[in-house]
Design a protein around this nucleic acid. Sequence first.
DNA 1: GGTGGAGATGAATACGTTTGCAACACGTTT
DNA 2: AAACGTGTTGCAAACGTATTCATCTCCACC
Lengths: 342, 342
Amino acid sequence: MANDSITRVTSLDVARRAGVSQSAVSRVFTPGGSASAQTIEKVRRAADALGYRPNVLARAMITGKSRIIGLVVAYLDNYFYPLAVERLSVALQEQGYHVLVFMASNTVGHVEGVMQEILDYQVDGIVLASVSMSSVLAARCDESGIPVVLFNRTQPDARLASVTTDNVDGGRQIARHLIAGGAQRIGYIAGFEGASTQIDREAGFRSGLEEAGITLHSRGVGNFQHATARAAALEMFAGRDRPDAVFVCNDHMAFAVMDVLRTKLDLDVPGDVAVAGFDDVPIAAWAAYDLTSFRQPLDRMIAATVATLLHRIDDGAAPPQRHVLAGDLIRRGSTKAEGTVP
Amino acid sequence: MANDSITRVTSLDVARRAGVSQSAVSRVFTPGGSASAQTIEKVRRAADALGYRPNVLARAMITGKSRIIGLVVAYLDNYFYPLAVERLSVALQEQGYHVLVFMASNTVGHVEGVMQEILDYQVDGIVLASVSMSSVLAARCDESGIPVVLFNRTQPDARLASVTTDNVDGGRQIARHLIAGGAQRIGYIAGFEGASTQIDREAGFRSGLEEAGITLHSRGVGNFQHATARAAALEMFAGRDRPDAVFVCNDHMAFAVMDVLRTKLDLDVPGDVAVAGFDDVPIAAWAAYDLTSFRQPLDRMIAATVATLLHRIDDGAAPPQRHVLAGDLIRRGSTKAEGTVP
DNA sequence: GGTGGAGATGAATACGTTTGCAACACGTTT
DNA sequence: AAACGTGTTGCAAACGTATTCATCTCCACC
């Protein structure tokens, strides 16, 4: 009853069995196509008997729509990204699209090559997560008519749509929160200096300090990497005059910082030092860290990404949107409660 | 100088510009094809000028090889899987393949639907990670001539290739290690009961206990989920006669267990209770947990998966292999050193 | 100088589908 | 009765490539 031959069953096979033309079969399986109830019935029956399903690749050839979205991602260290990939994939799947994954180290040359590979697959759209893109490349994609959405990243080039959390606001809220908890000597551990998230979060954070007339006590660079952040914290807290609070540019680095503070330096969090991160990945809520963080609204970010992408896919002329979504400060035990000024 | 038209540039365009036939262009870009040095030169020049790259989808139509591997994955909670996805994607990319992601909730009905979608894309092979598959489905894939590899999972059906760590051995080594550290009342927190990893790890663990004439003190079920594991631990350690060591079926659950032991129950690890996990994800090495675990050799698992897949792709008759790789016990601070019997 | 063979080339076909076009059927209106 | 719309249907032409087959070139060899 099921297909029992190795060779794939085509629409022509179904047509022959149903006693109709191949076009009729196609029309039954094409959303727009019209066919009489009788034809539909005959075709459906034959198709079921043969186990026929339309060949997506052949369809892509003729329609020019592959229903494939290319996803470029540089590293999955930070747990925020696996989560995003999962949600994105599910959301697109619901819309009949699928995700083709491309790993790219963040070097410009490599991204270039990867983008070429992507275009080879005739993808309908591209999502760039945790990876930057040169303007040249952006231009090429734009000319190919392939919509690109930056996820959790911004770029000056106006041709690129993007979806981000309000990182500036997040940084500012973290600053206010630390200050309200009584912090006075405040440090910052940066991510990768080229990343827009890093830049915006630091800018917001600094402006929040300024509001209160406080200047940054010290600054280190963690590059978004666990080991580097660890080293940066070690250096920042080595001297006599150490900070009493530190904002780490993302949770993933903040965990490394907390570990080093407690284990290597024997400091109490938040007693000796308050620590805050950014992203609010699930681990932040685990008791071992209980990390104050700024939550990125992942579901809304995904929804915005998908909406933007699909909108631009069926209206190529639509202008690239830039979504900046509001996030939420999540207060936890790694920082002191507000109003605790001694 | 680059392509400046919206319409895609085809091999025919290149042929016209180079003054050769379309076949010649194809041959230049096809690994097997032969052409004179002169032709190659002309074609290359024209192709570069026009920015031509072969259309992978069209190529897939004619060759029957899409160079796409379908990856089915159920959940990315456990950090082991994102890591695997990353490595797998990179490894396949190096071989000229790419990964199309399909998220599937682990219900049988859903997997069925997802597999249909996969086949629609004419994938060259399928990797199933963290998801099970009915024998019916396995049979259908086998008949389609599409090789399937189970990653970190086994199934009785002999038509399915699989790559796993030696989970039985891992469980046994964990048991020996806990016993050597002086544990006497030993508990176990299981994963999802249907998973082969869960079954094998528990079997090995129990056999390790038996060797020493010890019977399992208590058993809970965590279902591979953080919250469920937490609840199971809470119950297991509620009474007066609590275990002095517990093996948790994977790291992801072990973190939840450690948190609940320390924070809710105010127990010392490993002083009051020794805890061991399985997988050795990076977090296990973080100071906050410092978790003893059994390391899965991820790189070798990926290599075996890719090798098996590619081998079966270009030799459809090749018998499905079942790789069982050796892992390593990683001793850390969450368990007592061996020979610490009081 | 003729023969053979290896290598290069182009015309044509196939892959499995969607879709424009024309033909047709059938019921309704003038 | 003729004209007209409306909805179905099949034919045939795409989509962009790989590949078979026959033809041709060129050179070495006897």
